[in-house]
């Protein structure tokens, strides 16, 4: 997708806004602002991958054998993503938040994280050109 244009950007930003809307609604409708943590977690989820991605050495070593820091970044990213999905479920299970708020914050968090993944996948080509 080298020519992912302005339409992709608009679509992704729209989906991102819908995701944040879902999360904020899930907090505001029941006036319990704990699900806002889900937004924070999903925004922070790609951060370990991004931080550790360039620790993997040069292009010659990362081709066929992954390195420790890259693995650590992937491990932490997966951990944070599962945390983002598990936190509303746990809160709803112990009746801190309502099940409706749980479902809405999970959907919203999924939309936010999906937007981040789709954005980095759609614009990966142009990023690697600049490096």
């Amino acid at each position: 997708m080298g020519h992912a244009g302005i339409k992709t950007v608009i679509l992704l930003s729209f989906v991102l806004a819908v995701g944040f809307l879902m999360i904020i609604l899930s907090c505001a409708l029941w006036s319990n602002w704990l699900p806002l943590l889900v937004a924070l977690i999903f925004v922070l989820a790609p951060l370990p991958n991004a931080v550790f991605a360039h620790c993997g050495g040069d292009d010659f070593t990362t081709d066929y054998e992954g390195s420790g820091p890259v693995d650590l970044g992937r491990f932490l990213t997966a951990t944070v993503v599962v945390t983002g999905f598990a936190l509303p479920l746990v809160l709803a299970h112990s009746e801190v938040i309502r099940p409706g708020a749980c479902a809405m914050s999970i959907i919203g968090g999924g939309l936010v994280y999906g937007t981040i993944i789709a954005y980095s996948a759609a614009f990966k080509q142009e990023e690697s050109d600049y490096e």
């Binding site: 992937r74 990213t77 997966a78 951990t79 993503v81 598990a86 746990v90 299970h93």
Partner: peptide, 21 residues
Amino acid sequence: IYLAGGLFALANWTFLDAAIL
């Protein structure tokens, strides 16, 4: 590695669920 990280978080959240509950 992604699967291992997910399992790790799932494990800890399973127990934290019991603790919070």
